[in-house]
């Protein structure tokens, strides 16, 4: 008798929940647009977040449902972007023809490696965020690259490596300008700049020239000599720091020659 009751009860319970679930799956069915799956096939799936959506699946959904352009994706190859545009019936990307649109990360510090400019030896956790917590890092210059590789760890595309001098080096072929390293750097040294430009100010110090000289041999002091010599009028001095306007810059390299501090550099191009 007991065994029959038990079997009956469990059988009924199973049956009931089965019926409930199958009923619910019909009633609460959510239709997924098959286009989302198709678009997903061509999206890089690195989930870097460079587009501003929380991951590739969210971008695919936004492309299909809200008509967002695939050009938001910084990591996608041209062929895959075209494939997605074909699925969505869109003609062309907005920024296809803009050479300045293709960007890469730039480490704006030359990381002068002499103990003379150090306050103390840092022997803590190998992480820039952690090092900043300790008196803003071991270097006298508050803007100097800490060289502990938080940006390297943050890069989802394997485009950053620690190079000589304990400075990160960007592999521009791999860099898709997603901006993860920009967020990871506690010193805000990294910036996304157009890949085709080769002349850059490699310093972010906004301190006065007097202070900068004390802390670094090659930091920008905002003297303005580059600005005076620029034939294209592309350099401005803001807060004691030279800044290149990449839309005007003609990549001539005149400023590199005249800079008394060697803060401006023409890439030769970074050899990795």
């Amino acid at each position: 008798m007991n065994i029959i009751m038990a079997a009956l009860f469990l059988g009924l319970l199973g049956l009931l929940s089965g019926i409930l679930l199958s009923f619910a799956s019909k009633k609460f069915e959510v239709k997924v647009d098959p286009k989302i799956e198709e678009v997903m096939q061509y999206i890089p799936s690195a989930n870097c977040g460079g587009c501003g959506y929380p991951g590739c699946a969210a971008l695919a959904e936004a492309i299909v449902n809200n008509g967002v352009s695939i050009s938001l994706c910084v990591a996608i190859s041209k062929r895959n972007a075209d494939a997605i545009n074909k699925i969505m019936g869109v003609e062309k990307n907005a920024n296809d023809n803009d050479p300045l649109a293709r960007k890469a990360a730039l480490i704006r510090c030359q990381g002068l490696n002499t103990d003379e400019y150090k306050n103390f030896e840092y022997a803590g956790v190998k992480d820039c965020q952690a090092a900043v917590l300790l008196q803003n890092g071991p270097w006298k210059c508050p803007h100097r690259c800490l060289g502990l590789g938080s940006c390297v760890n943050a890069c989802p595309f394997d485009a950053l490596k620690m190079g000589p001098n304990n400075l990160p080096v960007v592999d521009e072929a791999k860099c898709v300008a997603c901006g993860k390293c920009v967020d990871a750097c506690p010193k805000q040294i990294i910036e996304l700049v157009p890949q085709i430009k080769t002349v850059h100010v490699l310093c972010v110090s906004k301190d006065t020239g007097k202070d900068t000289i004390k802390m670094c041999k090659i930091g920008c002091i905002g003297c303005g000599i580059c600005k005076k010599n620029c034939p294209a009028d592309a350099i401005v001095i803001e807060n004691n720091l030279a800044k290149i306007n990449y839309e005007k810059c003609i990549d001539c390299g005149k400023c590199v020659e005249v800079c008394p501090r060697k803060s401006i550099i023409k890439e030769s191009h970074l050899d990795i």
């Binding site: 009751m5 038990a6 009860f9 469990l10 319970l13 199973g14 929940s17 089965g18 409930l20 679930l21 619910a24 799956s25 609460f28 069915e29 959510v30």
Partner: peptide
């Protein structure tokens, strides 16, 4: 009421599993 207490564990597992599935469907929709 039916003195089936010895089926607690197995029936609870069944209920929880079904419940989770059901809840998942409902919040996916709503």
């Amino acid at each position: 009421p039916y003195s089936l207490e010895y089926l607690q564990t197995v029936s609870f597992i069944l209920i929880i599993a079904a419940l989770v599935q059901f809840v998942e469907m409902v919040i996916k929709k709503l």
